Simulated assay, not measured.
Amino acid sequence: MIDSIINSTLLLAVPLVLAALGGAIHRRAGVVNIGLEGQMLVGAFLGILASAATGNWLVGVLAGGLGGALAGLVMSLVITRLSANEIIVGLGFNIVALGIVGFVLRAVFGVSGTLRFPDQPRIPRISIPGVDGIPVLGAMLSGKDALFWLAALLVPFLAWAFANTRWGVRTRATGVSERASASLGVRTLGLRDTAGMLAGLLAGLGGVALSLGVSGLFNENMIAGRGFVALAAFYFGRSKPLATALACLLFSFFDALQIRLQTSGGFSADLIQTLPYIAVVAVLAWAGFTGLRRRARVTA
């Protein structure tokens, strides 16, 4: 049972970690990305279509990532170049993405809700010989796909990049004060657009992780609020890669737990499904409370 929960937690964490890291990059540049939900949906949809059309899962991963990047760039341009409110633009983008995807499903494929192709390619999972049979360690390391390892490597890489590269330092400076950064010759709008494109890329890959990695099909409601959970994760983690990833693992654990409780029976499915979202609210409330206490100590 422990191995099953660990394995499920790590698999379900991949979409969240990718999307949350993208949101953290955008937040470091000074923009709160509310459109992660829609960007994940775009990535999941294009990933399924491209992989089914070519018979190659890698093409699906690339298409989903590029689709998410384009969506992120378009959304960022509306915010940076037209001075639109980031919250309104993000919410509007989520609604538009859901509407367009739903329209294409019904008008082109003649289906409502779920799109499934025969012989759908999926991202292969990599078993590590000699490790897959070891309790706990095997569940942690073996049987994971390429996007899992990408997410795992991105956490230390982004932490290093934010602290040691020109891009990272300028992105953080832009997020702290756009006016001060611009006065030093930093192209703040370009940095924010780049951050928005990277956020869309990672969110799109998060959607691909759901459609080609976890489920092997597409459903227009498959994101199911994960974009907002990712937003909560990088907020809780203060946009720091490691803390953000740990928050994603915490939320994914409750998601895996509610799936386990539903299959075991004896609990109301409607109530159990709310468990991950209750955890999100509880964690955010705790983060807000500790933040208030910290500020109170500083001002005392």
Rank of each mutant, 00 (worst) to 15 (best):
residue 261 L to V: 10
residue 56 N to F: 00
residue 278 I to G: 06
residue 267 F to I: 14
residue 136 V to K: 00
residue 217 L to G: 01
residue 223 I to P: 08
residue 194 T to G: 13
residue 130 G to T: 08
residue 164 N to S: 11
residue 273 Q to L: 12
residue 239 S to M: 01
residue 207 G to I: 02
residue 150 L to T: 09
residue 279 A to T: 15
residue 258 Q to P: 12
residue 265 G to Q: 03
residue 147 L to P: 04
residue 15 P to E: 00
residue 2 I to W: 11
residue 136 V to T: 03
residue 163 A to Y: 14
residue 222 M to H: 02
residue 33 N to S: 10
residue 123 I to T: 05
residue 74 V to A: 13
residue 299 T to M: 15
residue 234 F to T: 09
residue 225 G to Q: 04
residue 72 G to T: 03
residue 146 A to R: 05
residue 264 S to L: 12
residue 39 Q to Y: 03
residue 163 A to H: 15
residue 250 L to W: 03
residue 50 A to N: 09
residue 174 T to W: 02
residue 242 L to F: 14
residue 153 L to N: 06
residue 48 I to W: 03
residue 214 V to G: 01
residue 238 R to A: 14
residue 55 G to Q: 07
residue 55 G to N: 10
residue 45 F to K: 01
residue 102 G to W: 04
residue 236 F to Y: 11
residue 85 N to Q: 15
residue 298 V to T: 13
residue 124 P to A: 05
residue 127 S to H: 12
residue 35 G to D: 06
residue 62 L to P: 06
residue 199 A to L: 06
residue 6 I to Y: 00
residue 88 I to A: 10
residue 77 L to P: 02
residue 290 T to G: 05
residue 31 V to P: 08
residue 81 R to L: 13
residue 217 L to S: 12
residue 86 E to G: 08
residue 192 R to A: 14
residue 10 L to D: 01
residue 216 G to N: 04
residue 150 L to H: 00
residue 20 A to F: 01
residue 184 L to I: 05
residue 149 W to M: 00
residue 244 T to A: 11
residue 259 I to N: 12
residue 76 S to H: 00
residue 194 T to K: 04
residue 37 E to V: 13
residue 22 G to P: 05
residue 300 A to W: 13
residue 246 L to S: 06
residue 299 T to Q: 13
residue 172 R to I: 08
residue 258 Q to Y: 03
residue 203 A to V: 01
residue 219 N to T: 15
residue 190 G to K: 09
residue 75 M to F: 08
residue 42 V to K: 03
residue 3 D to Q: 04
residue 60 G to E: 12
residue 253 F to W: 12
residue 217 L to Y: 09
residue 272 I to Y: 05
residue 167 W to E: 09
residue 154 L to N: 10
residue 68 G to K: 03
residue 78 V to M: 14
